[in-house]
Amino acid sequence: MSFTSRQQGAITLASGGLLMGTIGIFVEEARLDAMTLVFFRCLFGFLALAAYCAWKGFFRTQQFTRRMVALALLTGVLIVTQWVWFFDAIHRTGIAVATVVFHVQPFWVVLIGAALFKEPLGGDRLGWIATAFAGLVLASGVATAGNLQGHASYLFGVGEALAGSVLYASVTLIAKSLGQLRPHLLTLAQCLVGVVCLPFVAPLTAVHIAPAQWFWLVGMGVLHTGLSYVLIYGALPKLTTPVIAVLLFVYPVTAILVDAVVYGRALSAPQLAGVALIVIASLGVNLGWPLVSMVRRGDPARRPVE
């Protein structure tokens, strides 16, 4: 059975999303602090991506400039910090909540882009963004947490995931100005930043790692930073924006299912409603669905007199 290029891209992107959706298991089962986890993710991810880039000849064909290298290293600082916050958020809130909160990052891209580049937002986009953040309040569980003072660690984890989403949005905007740099090499540079910088921030020499833990650490680097990024980067050029917008939700949906099935942390009905709002709002922004204009067209007071 043969597949078209578009079908191959869809299968590959979905596979990458499924794989990324399982990273929470590796974070939980490794049973190490977030900085140590990110260091080894960067180390093994760097080795995996370096081998792939060398095999594909990317080092020979890529032309580098000082500006390109400087911006790539800057994104490395941002992405490594985001990974640390995200992994710590998983420890504090669970896989599903941390992942869902993090996935409001496309809306930060829109808002930051509008602020920096004077891009017009329009009523429809603002409406979808408001919908997404209403969904965020529900999905995070903050709205139904009751006594918030008794959930300080949980709230801190939600804040970490949300702050991480802002950093990732910033990386996305910077990466747009690095169009000539292969995304594989960009991720490689980001991993290099983690390998070099994290031991200075949190020395790792005293960490005792059991043999069983190495499986999870190597897996985060090779599978979730090497293989998954190769799958996703290889699929995107083959697909249209609507297909990409839909398939990108394979990752958070997988994470929600993993948390429920493996750890018994199923989202409540209000949280699932929040997830639905975020998904719908994201599709609305990415696909240009009308919202405010549609409401106005449906308002009898605004209809012309016949």
Rank of each mutant, 00 (worst) to 15 (best):
I174G: 05
F156I: 15
G159W: 10
A169W: 00
A161N: 07
Q149Y: 00
G159V: 12
L162S: 11
S153K: 12
G164A: 07
Y154V: 04
Q149N: 09
V158R: 03
L162F: 15
S177K: 15
G179T: 11
L178I: 11
S153Y: 08
S170I: 05
G157K: 04
L173G: 01
L167I: 11
G179H: 12
T172F: 00
A175S: 13
A161L: 09
T172C: 00
H151M: 09
H151I: 01
A169R: 01
K176I: 06
Y168L: 10
L178W: 08
G159N: 13
L162Q: 12
V171I: 10
Q149F: 00
Y168S: 02
V166Q: 08
T172L: 05
L155F: 05
G159M: 12
K176H: 11
Y154C: 04
L155M: 14
Y154F: 14
G157Y: 03
G159K: 12
L155N: 07
I174S: 07
A163W: 00
V158C: 14
V158T: 10
S170G: 12
I174C: 09
E160H: 13
L178T: 09
A163C: 13
L167P: 03
S170T: 14
G159S: 14
G159H: 12
T172N: 08
L167Q: 06
A169M: 05
S165T: 11
V166C: 10
Y154M: 07
L155T: 08
Q149I: 03
V158I: 15
V171E: 02
V166N: 08
G150R: 03
A152C: 05
F156C: 12
Y154W: 11
L167G: 05
S165R: 08
I174R: 02
V171T: 09
G159A: 14
L162Y: 11
S177T: 15
A169V: 03
A152T: 15
Q149D: 09
G179D: 13
S153G: 13
A169P: 00
L173E: 02
L178S: 10
G179M: 12
G179R: 10
G159L: 12
Y168P: 01
A163R: 07
G164K: 01
A152I: 07
Q149P: 00
G157V: 05
V158S: 06
V166Y: 02
S165V: 09
L155D: 06
I174T: 10
H151D: 03
Q149A: 13
V158N: 04
E160P: 09
T172H: 00
L155R: 06
L167D: 03
G164D: 05
A169C: 06
L173P: 01
S170L: 10
L173M: 07
V171R: 01
G164N: 06
S153L: 14
A175Q: 10
